[in-house]
C-alpha cells in the first residue's frame, strides 16, 4: 500500500512539474465553463438551476482530457527503460499500475474540486437539487476511473504516447457511442447487452440523481478489468512458453 502511495505521489508531482497538469486544468475549466455558463444550451438558456449542462460537457472534455494524462504513464517508462528500474525495486506490477491510476484520479479530483464554484454560484441563482449535483459529481468520478483504466491499458501495450492516446480514444468511443448505436439497431437480448455495455446509459441515470448498484458494478468492474489488463501487459515479459 505504501509503495502505491509513493508512486502516486511521484506521478502527481510530475504532472505539475511538467506543466501538463496546469495546461489540462485550464483547458478543462475553460471549455466546461464556457459551455456551462456562456454558450449553447447553457444554464441561462435552459433557465433552471441545474448543473446538467456542466455534466454534459465534462462528459466529453474528460473523454479527451484523461487519455492525455494517461498516455505517457506506462508508454514513456517503457520507451525510456525506466520501467526496468521500477520493476526491479521490491514492488509488484500491480502496485505500479495502481499507483499511476491513483495519481491520475487525484488530478481529476482536483479538476472537479475547482468546478465547485459553479455549484456555489448556482445556489445563489435558484433552488438547486443538491442530491442531483452530488450524484452527478459522483458519476463523473466513476466515469473518470473507467477512462483512466482504459487509458492505462492503452499506455501499457505500446511504447508510443501518441498511439496510446489514440488507442484509448478508440476504446473509449466504443463505450461512449458505438455500443449505444448498436443497442438501438438491434432488438431483444443483443440490444440489452449493448445497452448494458454503453457507458452513457449508466452515466445518464447517475447524473440524473439515481444511484443504482448495477451502475456502480458496471463502472467498478470496467475499471478493475482495465487495470488488470494493464498489469498483465506489464507482466508479459515474464511469460515463457
Amino acid at each position: 500500500m505504501k509503495a502505491i502511495w509513493v508512486i502516486a505521489k511521484k506521478e502527481f508531482v510530475t504532472f505539475f512539474d511538467s506543466l501538463a497538469a496546469y495546461i489540462l486544468l485550464v483547458v478543462f475549466l475553460g471549455i466546461s465553463g464556457f459551455f456551462t455558463w456562456l454558450f449553447g444550451s447553457d444554464i441561462f438558456f435552459i433557465g433552471q438551476a441545474t448543473l446538467q449542462p456542466f455534466f454534459g460537457v465534462a462528459y466529453w472534455t474528460l473523454f479527451f482530457f484523461i487519455p492525455a494524462l494517461t498516455m505517457k504513464m506506462l508508454a514513456e517508462e517503457k520507451r525510456s527503460g525506466t520501467i526496468e528500474l521500477l520493476l526491479t525495486k521490491p514492488i509488484t506490477d500491480w502496485q505500479v499500475v495502481a499507483g499511476k491510476f491513483l495519481a491520475a484520479f487525484l488530478l481529476i479530483v482536483v479538476a472537479l474540486l475547482l468546478t465547485l464554484p459553479y455549484y456555489i454560484t448556482l445556489t445563489f441563482i435558484g433552488d438547486v437539487d443538491h442530491g442531483a449535483v452530488w450524484s452527478g459529481y459522483f458519476g463523473m468520478l466513476l466515469m473518470s476511473m473507467t477512462y483512466i483504466s482504459i487509458g492505462l491499458f492503452a499506455s501499457s501495450i505500446t511504447n508510443n504516447q501518441i498511439v496510446a492516446f489514440l488507442l484509448s480514444l478508440f476504446i473509449g468511443v466504443f463505450f461512449l457511442i458505438i455500443f449505444n448505436v448498436l443497442a438501438s439497431s438491434f432488438t431483444g437480448d443483443t440490444a440489452l447487452i449493448f445497452n448494458y455495455l454503453s457507458l452513457s446509459t449508466h452515466y445518464d441515470s447517475i447524473s440524473r440523481g439515481v444511484i443504482d448498484s448495477r451502475d456502480l458494478i458496471y463502472f467498478l468492474s470496467i475499471t478493475f478489468f482495465g487495470l488488470l489488463l494493464a498489469e498483465t501487459a506489464l507482466a508479459k515479459r515474464n511469460i515463457v512458453e
Partner: peptide, 21 residues
C-alpha cells in the same frame, strides 16, 4: 522475487533515469 529485490542494487545497461526529476 520481492524478497530478493530488496537485497539487490541494480544499475541497468543504458542507465535509464527520469530526466525531468
Amino acid at each position: 522475487p520481492e524478497e530478493i529485490k530488496k537485497k539487490i542494487g541494480y544499475l541497468p545497461e543504458s542507465n535509464p533515469l527520469y530526466y525531468d526529476m
